[in-house]
């Protein structure tokens, strides 16, 4: 009897804690709604007076937005396309440079170190301009998208090489020893045992890099004639002196893409976590 009562008291406490946690979550959601409502209100264009004070909210040119939203929105697939192509090349570069760094072969270690250091030591925007503006001087002409994708791939490859290196290093010594004891060469061990396990560990953080890339891909617009979201937005914004409206549309798109891919990435992470150990 006594034990039962103690147990039910514990349960009460647990229930109370759960309730508090739930209420906290509800409050956060309510505040999100309030903030979003305020944001909409601020851009609603409504004008009203409270006694002597006149409140003026920001008025958006809805006619302009209706006309140009489809044009700007067509940049979204382009943004995703640039990001996907760049993240694929970046992953390959990252894997190669991580393997080179861990190879124990002096020229390869130096080359990978040089690559990572140089790229991480210079601005991404400079790198994009370099491929677009500097290379033609020595006879290499790259189109805007190609220059942009090259720069993004090289840049993200350098940053992701650390992720890949950590992934490869985190595959335990025992795995390597088992492979070697079974007669595998170093190359077979890396290809068949270490890299496949490392890739699983690397996928979630690479997802984060991809999401960052979605936004950094806007920098490619600076080369002109890359028909991605930001380029379209600033082009029509400037032409019609409607920068506020145009950029707001682009911002919403970037935000939505980020939310969507973050959700996807979180799910992926959950699934990966279930698979192993």
């Amino acid at each position: 009897m006594a034990a039962e009562r103690v147990l039910s008291r514990t349960q009460l406490v647990i229930r109370q804690q759960e309730r508090q946690r739930f209420m906290f979550g509800v409050q956060v959601i309510v505040w999100w709604i309030i903030i979003l409502a305020l944001l909409f209100f601020a851009f609603s264009g409504i004008r009203f007076s409270l006694g002597p004070i006149t409140i003026k909210t920001i008025a958006l040119d809805t006619e302009f937005m209706k006309t140009w939203a489809p044009f700007i929105s067509r940049g979204v697939p382009q943004t995703i396309y640039i990001s996907i192509v760049s993240i694929i090349f970046a992953s390959i570069l990252a894997l190669l440079s991580a393997l080179a760094r861990l190879s124990g072969i002096p020229p390869l270690v130096a080359l990978a170190g040089f690559y990572v250091s140089l790229i991480r030591g210079t601005p991404l925007l400079l790198q994009i301009f370099f491929f677009f503006l500097a290379l033609p001087q020595i006879g290499i002409r790259l189109s805007g998208p190609v220059a942009g994708i090259t720069a993004l791939s090289l840049n993200y490859g350098a940053y992701m090489s650390e992720i890949f290196r950590a992934g490869i290093e985190s595959v335990g010594k025992g795995q390597r020893e088992a492979a070697i004891a079974l007669g595998m060469t170093h190359g077979q061990m890396m290809r068949r045992i270490v890299v496949p396990q490392a890739l699983r560990l690397v996928i979630p953080p690479s997802g984060n890099e991809f999401i960052a890339m979605l936004k950094d891909s806007a920098l490619v617009a600076t080369t002109g004639f890359v028909q991605e979201t930001f380029w379209r937005a600033q082009k029509v914004g400037r032409a019609n002196f409607r920068g506020l409206e145009a950029l707001a549309i682009a911002a919403v798109w970037y935000w939505l893409m980020t939310i969507m891919f973050t959700t996807l990435q979180a799910r992926l992470e959950q699934r990966m976590a279930r698979g192993d150990r």
């Binding site: 025992g174 795995q175 020893e177 088992a178 079974l182 007669g183 595998m184 068949r192 045992i193 396990q197």
Partner: peptide, 28 residues
């Protein structure tokens, strides 16, 4: 020589049968 380790060191990304045939197929 075949070696058995204290910590087993099975390959976690491969099924049991794949663990067994990996080296014969790849090495031999």
């Amino acid at each position: 020589t075949g070696m058995v380790f204290q910590e087993f060191n099975l390959f976690p990304h491969l099924s049991v049968i794949e663990n067994l045939i990996e080296a014969p197929v790849i090495v031999k």
